[in-house]
């Protein structure tokens, strides 16, 4: 097991390397630079600024320098927010995004798995139809429709929740409710559908028949015998789900004005704030890769047939 983990850890390096390289070059190759607008500046000053940010060096040297900095954990200064460095900007906003994302994931998993199992066990009853129609809705309503809709109904019309604010910045905790619901809905839908179908499939399998022939109770069969196998597709879905929640949080943060990383990301793309873009992408990728890694480990733990070699 340890060997497997180490191997997977080493395997993460090329992915990270590719991400950093790709985003670095995409951003640099693109026309237009962060200081191009300041033409009014005297040539000398401009050169000074560029020298300060090492932009006068050849691209490959800049790349090497940047790589070296990233390995040390320094994402460099922001080109646009002049007095901040990327680490500070990300450090301020990342916790909000991480909390939002993990709460959404937790909610999606909790409801998705429990309702999915329920639907599978009580097939073709109301307990099946209601969660599954909800899931069908979740699958078809895009986040950017659902989030404004929630805001319109629960903030504007009913007035149950404040329209803006975020509970980590001295606002009441209920400000978190709508963003979390909005973000988790689509993933609830996927997880519930996946859980249901794989549970139904598992319950039909031969080894469940064996368990029934042994005289086991239904609940024991479901939770002890079927759960592990049925959870495998759900676990392998979690990797893409994390990626989706990362991108989804951009919309949610915009609609509910959560001071998270997503807003920064879109803004820095418009501003061509190179270091900030690459920094945000690296942070997102690290989160994603770590999550994929955890998912793989959990999968290997659940399925004894996976060899660790």
């Amino acid at each position: 097991m340890t060997k497997y983990i180490i191997k997977r850890l080493i395997g993460m390096i090329p992915t990270l390397f590719i991400i950093v390289t790709l985003s670095f070059f995409i951003v640099r190759i693109a026309p237009g630079g962060p200081f191009d607008g300041e033409r009014a500046l005297p040539e000398a000053v401009k050169r000074n600024i560029e020298a300060k940010y090492h932009m006068d060096e050849p691209l490959i040297v800049q790349y090497g320098r940047y790589m070296f900095d990233v390995i040390r954990g320094d994402l460099g200064p922001s080109y646009k927010y002049k007095d901040y460095d990327v680490n500070t900007l990300i450090g301020v906003s990342l916790p909000n995004s991480v909390v939002l994302g993990s709460m959404a994931m937790a909610v999606a998993l909790l409801f998705g798995i429990s309702l999915g199992v329920l639907a599978a066990v009580r097939q073709n009853t109301l307990l099946d139809y209601i969660p599954m129609s909800l899931a069908a809705l979740g699958l078809s309503i895009p986040l950017f429709v659902f989030a404004p809709f929630l805001q319109q109904v629960f903030c504007m019309t009913l007035g149950w929740f404040p329209t803006t604010g975020w509970f980590m910045n001295d606002a009441p905790v209920r400000t978190a409710v709508l963003p979390v619901i909005a973000l988790s809905f689509a993933y609830y839908a996927d997880i519930a559908r996946l859980t249901r179908s794989s549970m139904v499939e598992t319950l039909r399998s031969d080894y469940i028949r064996t368990a029934r022939a042994k005289g086991m109770k239904n609940s024991t069969i479901i939770f002890k015998h079927a759960m592990k196998g049925a959870m495998l597709p759900v676990v392998s879905y979690l990797g893409p789900a994390f990626a989706g929640i990362l991108t989804g949080s951009i919309v949610v943060e915009q609609v509910f004005l959560v001071p998270g990383l997503g807003k920064f990301f879109v803004q820095s793309s418009f501003n061509r704030d190179y270091t900030l873009i690459v920094g945000v992408v690296i942070v997102y990728s690290v989160i994603l890769i770590v999550m994929n890694f955890i998912v793989d480990i959990v999968y290997a733990y659940l399925d004894p047939r996976i060899s660790y070699k």
Binding site: D206, T210, K214, G215, M216, K224
Partner: peptide, 25 residues
Amino acid sequence: ELRNIRGNKISMIFQDPMTSLNPYL
């Protein structure tokens, strides 16, 4: 009552031993 008979008084073995045992336990 049925559960008390299954596996206790009457037990079964199935055609395909590859799939009849729970692979995860």
